[in-house]
């Protein structure tokens, strides 16, 4: 039987959306890479390169919906962990930017994504443990 608890429903909806979006992301990513390696040129190359982006936008919307669907305490943890992740990413990326000025190798923008997701995950774990 499905739970009537709105928080459980919000979590289930988020999880289902996340799984579907990630499956779509992997499929679109492989398709995109295959087509790009096939030597596609012109404006189509740009469109094909951006193919994996829509599922990422779906995940972003799913996080916003999760924020609306959870209870006040869960929302607080979610917002605090996202704020921490944003702050950590800002400090790390700016710091590395200055190190690049000193000759450090230029990193791919992909690292920003990695730092955001990593710091969000770690912040969530620490905050949940703090309130236990």
């Amino acid at each position: 039987m499905k739970s009537q608890n709105p928080v459980h429903r919000a979590h289930r909806r988020y999880l289902i959306t996340l799984i579907v979006a990630m499956v779509a992301y992997i499929a679109l990513l492989f398709t995109s890479i295959t087509l790009l390696n096939g030597g596609l040129t012109g404006p189509m190359r740009l469109l094909v390169a951006l193919m994996p982006v829509p599922p990422i936008i779906v995940v972003f919307i799913a996080v916003l919906q999760l924020l609306q669907g959870v209870d006040e305490f869960e929302r607080r943890i979610l917002i605090e962990s996202l704020a921490l992740a944003a702050g950590i990413t800002a400090v790390v990326s700016v710091t590395y930017g200055f190190l690049e000025n000193a000759g450090f190798p230029t990193l791919s923008a992909w690292w920003t994504w990695t730092v955001v997701m990593g710091s969000w995950g770690v912040s969530s774990i620490i905050l949940r443990a703090r309130y236990r």
């Binding site: 608890n5 928080v7 459980h8 209870d71 305490f73 869960e74 949940r128 309130y131």
Partner: peptide, 15 residues
């Protein structure tokens, strides 16, 4: 209509 974790936090006087 809240998560069990929320009850835990209130009972633990953390929230």
């Amino acid at each position: 209509g809240v998560a069990r974790q929320t009850i835990v936090a209130i009972e633990g006087e953390k929230y």
